[in-house]
Design a protein around this nucleic acid. Structure first.
Lengths: 191, 191
DNA sequence: TACGTTTGCCTAATGGTCTTAGGCAAATTA
DNA sequence: TAATTTGCCTAAGACCATTAGGCAAACGTA
């Protein structure tokens, strides 16, 4: 039949689809086996256990997320790149809510270091080259952007912005403008 | 036979402690019953089910969080208030990681509206009165601050900032300075 | 083509989970 | 003191994660 590893990858991909359908936190061996039309115990030849399954889905999602971001910033700079990068992140979250939740799954340090997470982080740094930040401030700015994108999408998906005006869409644009402005006028360190 | 003397509220408080000890996502009826020294089934006279238990812990955490924030901004304004407000949030997360995770538990719309969440949001708005924002931009700024605090603490607790220089502490201060600067020089809407 | 190996699924069994139902004795109230 | 409520119990059903051992079909190789 197929080579070793191919089947495992298929299982993980099905797990990612399942996450988008029913939510990442509800992805379990039994639920995935049901979707695949096999017995639960049969999954254990492809995946070590429930935690391993979730970890693999998380790694897949991080990879996809980094790919999207990479495509988004290619050939752009400044506000344009900032918007494209941020939108890639947010759009992915809405198109693949389960995978997006998977991308936020807590990985142990070693696994995280080997994931596409650092790649995403390097892209954020590349994005900032379009702005003229004091070198020491660059890391702070990277962390700020990560925090905003992360936090905004999480709150938005939780519905925090959906029951009051103005629209979340509008806030998102204004916030990107504000961040662009801030990056152009980053305050000198007080220390 | 000696009674454990449990009222529903006591059960919830024990649940909150348990969350801080083992993590919110691992708080379950059986685990909580173990901590209380009673049988799992006995919990069901105090709490409707596992989801109800988690919801009640979340409501408790949101209340505590709003109290901390309220105490923090009393008598302060501007950068001072911003820092105190943000630190109240972050400190709570580190002192009570399980409760903090509980505060981010997805509540249905009605429950969320009746929680202390809106109170916390109103305080953010009060904080912004110290800055001179165009009225239409105030909501955008509220959402930005919520996103940053939320996102930063989440990433920090996940360890994202702990394996590289500069220290997370330093970034936190710089980011608060940057936000203060941004709120003082909020860009005019482009639309 | 024939043969041993690998692969992908199976059944069976263990021990844990959540939840409901019904019961009993202590604490509280009248 | 008598009646009611409270806080726990045992029992049981359904579901879940995981391990162990087995079997048949597909594969690579001689």
């Amino acid at each position: 039949m197929a080579r070793a590893g191919l089947a495992a990858e298929r299982v993980v991909r099905a797990g990612a689809e399942l996450a988008d359908e029913i939510g990442f936190e509800r992805v379990t061996p039994s639920e995935l086996a049901r979707k695949l039309g096999i017995k639960t115990a049969s999954l254990y030849s492809h995946v070590k256990n429930a935690h391993d399954l979730k970890t693999r889905i998380a790694l897949l999602a991080l990879e996809e997320l980094a790919d999207q971001a990479s495509a988004a910033i290619a050939g752009r700079a400044g506000r344009d790149a900032l918007g494209a990068f941020a939108n890639a992140y947010r759009d992915y979250a809405f198109q693949h809510p389960g995978r997006f939740a998977a991308a936020r799954f807590r990985l142990d340090a070693a696994t995280a270091a080997a994931s596409a997470g650092p790649r995403h982080s390097r892209m954020t740094r590349a994005l900032l080259r379009g702005y003229d930040l004091p070198e020491l401030q660059e890391t702070h700015a990277v962390r700020l952007l990560g925090s905003v994108f992360n936090g905004y999408v999480e709150l938005e998906m939780a519905g925090s912005f959906s029951h009051s005006a103005p629209s979340s869409e509008e806030s998102w644009t204004e916030i990107l403008d504000a961040l662009d402005s801030l990056l152009r006028n980053w305050p000198a360190s007080s220390s």
